[in-house]
Simulated assay, not measured.
Amino acid sequence: MRTTEQNSLYSDLDRMSAGELLRAINTEDRKVPEAIAGEIPVIERVVVAIVERMKRGGRVFYLGAGTSGRLGIVDASEIPPTYGVRDKFIGLMAGGDKAIRNAVEGAEDDPEQGWKDILAFGPTPDDTLIGIAASGTTPYVVGAIRRAREHGLLTSCITCNEGSPMAAEAEIPIEVVVGPEFVTGSTRMKAGTTQKLVLNMISTSVMILLGHVKGCKMVDMQLSNSKLVDRGTRMIMEATGITDYSVARDLLLRHGQVRTAVEAYFKERQ
């Protein structure tokens, strides 16, 4: 039996108090970062390979079903506002966008549909496909990885079971085994947390290595709300030595981006 399907280490959950439930869930959740730590060398290989390909114009496709698919879409959708980079991380899930909110029955069982969904984007050998499936058995994902590898894409995956069909198809499989779920088979819990953390690690590291962070600041972020305008203004004040908030803010709004505003400020003073 797959680890993600094994019985919970806790019995009689329905007899636990709220406090007992919360403490037990927290105990299980703490196992996740420890398990991920053991896979960092593998995750590093994926990151380095993606950076090399993105420098040549490559992209990353996240592909999953259910919770796994939604997590990929969330991570991909946060890249443009955070780093000012569009169309580099693309999240796809079985059943399409309508499945983000509502389950589409049977969508994940078609081994050909995942690759068909990717074909709409004109994939090239510089692209990377990361399959996301806690079980490692989802046909929609397994079939896509197989076809992607045939067409020269770099393939990786994130699973919480060892020796899965998905890992067997992927060039660089990331296998983070976190044990049975608190509620038996509910992979939205520890497995979902695992996937979210690994996706964060991959996309954040790639963006930093491609130069979208200076020091520890998101210098290419989109100014999509007043909070981010304020953050960008203060970043400019720190980087340039400008002491007047309104001057820094005007500079930011004129150029639309922290990096561009700072570069323009120093260029004007040469």
Rank of each mutant, 00 (worst) to 15 (best):
R2Q: 11
T3W: 00
S8C: 13
S8A: 13
Y10M: 01
R15V: 01
S17H: 11
L21C: 12
E28G: 06
E28W: 00
D29V: 11
R30T: 12
R30Y: 00
G38N: 13
E44P: 01
E44M: 13
V48P: 00
V48I: 13
E52V: 01
V60I: 13
V60E: 03
V74H: 07
I79Q: 03
D97V: 14
A99R: 13
A99I: 12
N102C: 02
V104H: 10
E105R: 03
E108V: 06
E108L: 09
Q113D: 14
W115Y: 15
K116W: 02
F121L: 08
F121T: 06
P123G: 06
A133R: 05
A133S: 15
A134C: 09
G136K: 03
P139Y: 14
Y140C: 08
V141E: 10
G143I: 12
G143C: 12
G143Q: 09
R146E: 15
A148Q: 04
H151S: 14
G152S: 12
L153P: 01
T155M: 11
T155D: 13
G163Q: 04
M166V: 09
E171Q: 15
S186N: 07
M189R: 03
K190Q: 10
T193P: 06
Q195D: 11
K196G: 12
L199A: 12
M201P: 00
S203P: 08
S205M: 12
V206G: 11
M207K: 09
I208E: 07
L210S: 03
G211T: 10
V213F: 05
V213S: 06
V219G: 04
L223H: 07
S224K: 07
L228K: 01
R231P: 02
R234D: 05
G241R: 08
V247M: 13
D250H: 07
L253C: 09
L253H: 05
A261W: 04
V262K: 04
A264R: 10
F266P: 01
F266V: 04
R269T: 04
